[in-house]
Amino acid sequence: MFVRSKTHPMGRRLTRRAVLALTGAVYALYGAGCALQLLPLGPDLAASASVAGLLMIAASLAAFALLAGSSLQRQAQEPESQLDERERFERNRAAYVAFSAFAGLVLLGVFYIVIANDLAEAGKAELWIPQTSAHWNAVFWGLMLLALTLPAAVLAWSSGDAEDQAADDL
């Protein structure tokens, strides 16, 4: 998802450090926010944890909104016809890495749920698994955020230094 603004039709130029920091903030804040919202913390903490969780999720979405208008997000999400050959080459390489990482994470998640179910059925351990619709909503939107931001994060990880990119304006 790339949001084109009138002032920055090619996306806002963020340094690779900024993109990596924003991506990290999206993942960390969303994960922590969902944990505070959904994990049973006892009646004393429940209300304040719920508010803190909501604030963290809102901050995560704000970081995502900044990323959605960046030039690296444009490179990751634009149709092929809008990119030049270097951008297409880098995007294809990043998409391959991002897909491999995403598929691996999803596979690990499914594996965890299978093991947790087996242990619960055998009565050996009670590991947390998503059960309610709120749990599955959190998992779904988390995976959605990951799928939308991972290619841009990989592009930032593999792109040149910020100084070099600034010099490209000359």
């Binding site: 030049d84 050959e85 951008e87 080459f89 040149g160 070099d164 990119q165 010099a167 490209d168 304006d169």
Partner: peptide, 30 residues
């Protein structure tokens, strides 16, 4: 400027920077 060259060959100005630094090898067409 890099922008001038980029416009003439139809690429992003950043791509000219990548080419000059040797960070990207162009296609035969480019």
């Amino acid at each position: 400027s890099r922008k001038d060259v980029a416009e003439k060959v139809g690429v992003n100005p950043q791509t000219i920077g990548y080419l000059e630094r040797g960070d990207y090898a162009p296609s035969v067409e480019l």
